[in-house]
Deep mutational scan, measured.
Amino acid sequence: GNAVQEIMIPASKAGLVIGKGGETIKQLQERAGVKMVMIQDGPQNTGADKPLRITGDPYKVQQAKEMVLELIRD
């Protein structure tokens, strides 16, 4: 079955996860074999953390989460 996890991405790092024209998030999805969606909560909310929703095989979702956390670590 499918697992769904959401991680909060600091607004300052959201661009890093998505990448230029969505390149990075696309590569992450391909590498991890999961679906990732950045939940954009309207323009008034630009400074707030953005939830990144990861959907897929539970094991792969976990892997994907680690990859993203690695990416946004300072």
Rank of each mutant, 00 (worst) to 15 (best):
G1L: 10
G1I: 15
G1M: 15
G1W: 02
N2C: 15
N2K: 15
N2W: 11
A3N: 15
A3K: 15
A3M: 15
V4W: 06
V4M: 15
V4H: 14
Q5I: 14
E6T: 12
E6F: 04
E6C: 03
E6R: 05
E6H: 07
E6D: 06
I7V: 10
I7G: 00
M8F: 06
M8V: 03
M8S: 06
M8I: 12
I9W: 00
I9T: 01
P10A: 02
P10R: 02
P10G: 02
P10M: 01
A11Q: 08
A11Y: 07
S12Q: 08
S12F: 04
K13C: 13
K13A: 07
A14W: 10
A14N: 09
A14P: 01
A14C: 14
G15N: 14
G15W: 13
G15M: 15
G15I: 11
G15D: 11
L16C: 05
L16D: 09
V17T: 02
V17P: 01
V17Y: 02
V17C: 03
V17S: 02
V17A: 02
I18L: 13
I18A: 15
G19M: 02
K20L: 09
K20G: 06
G21K: 14
G21I: 03
G21R: 13
G22I: 02
G22R: 06
G22V: 03
G22P: 03
E23A: 15
T24H: 11
T24S: 08
I25V: 05
K26T: 08
K26W: 04
K26V: 05
K26H: 04
K26C: 04
Q27Y: 05
Q27D: 13
L28C: 02
L28Q: 01
L28H: 02
L28R: 01
Q29I: 03
Q29E: 11
Q29P: 01
Q29W: 03
E30P: 00
E30A: 10
R31N: 08
A32S: 12
A32D: 02
G33T: 03
G33H: 06
G33D: 07
V34F: 00
V34I: 02
K35M: 05
K35D: 08
K35N: 14
K35V: 05
V37I: 10
V37T: 11
V37F: 08
M38F: 15
M38Q: 03
M38N: 02
I39L: 13
I39V: 13
I39K: 13
I39R: 13
Q40E: 08
Q40G: 11
Q40C: 11
Q40H: 05
Q40N: 07
D41Y: 05
D41H: 10
G42Y: 15
G42I: 09
G42N: 09
G42E: 13
P43W: 12
P43I: 12
P43S: 15
P43T: 06
Q44F: 07
Q44T: 14
Q44K: 15
Q44L: 09
N45D: 14
N45Y: 07
N45S: 09
N45A: 12
N45F: 14
N45T: 11
T46M: 11
T46G: 11
T46C: 09
G47N: 10
G47C: 09
G47Q: 11
G47Y: 05
A48V: 12
A48G: 13
A48N: 07
A48L: 11
A48C: 15
D49C: 09
D49W: 06
D49T: 10
K50D: 02
K50M: 10
P51G: 10
P51T: 12
L52Q: 00
L52G: 00
L52N: 01
L52H: 00
L52R: 00
L52F: 05
L52K: 00
L52T: 00
R53I: 10
R53P: 00
R53E: 06
R53G: 02
I54P: 00
I54V: 05
I54L: 08
I54N: 00
T55P: 00
T55A: 06
G56S: 00
G56L: 00
D57S: 08
D57C: 07
D57W: 02
D57G: 04
D57Q: 12
P58D: 14
P58V: 11
P58G: 10
P58F: 07
P58A: 12
Y59C: 13
Y59Q: 14
Y59W: 14
Y59S: 13
Y59L: 14
K60T: 03
K60E: 04
K60S: 10
K60P: 04
V61N: 01
V61M: 03
V61C: 09
Q62C: 10
Q63L: 13
Q63T: 10
Q63H: 08
Q63D: 06
Q63I: 11
Q63S: 09
A64T: 03
K65T: 09
K65Y: 06
K65Q: 10
E66K: 13
E66T: 11
E66S: 10
E66P: 02
M67I: 05
V68R: 02
L69T: 12
L69M: 15
L71Y: 04
L71I: 14
L71F: 08
L71H: 06
L71S: 04
L71G: 03
L71V: 12
I72W: 03
I72H: 02
I72R: 02
R73M: 13
R73Y: 09
D74C: 05
D74G: 13
D74K: 04
D74H: 04
D74R: 07
D74V: 05
D74M: 04
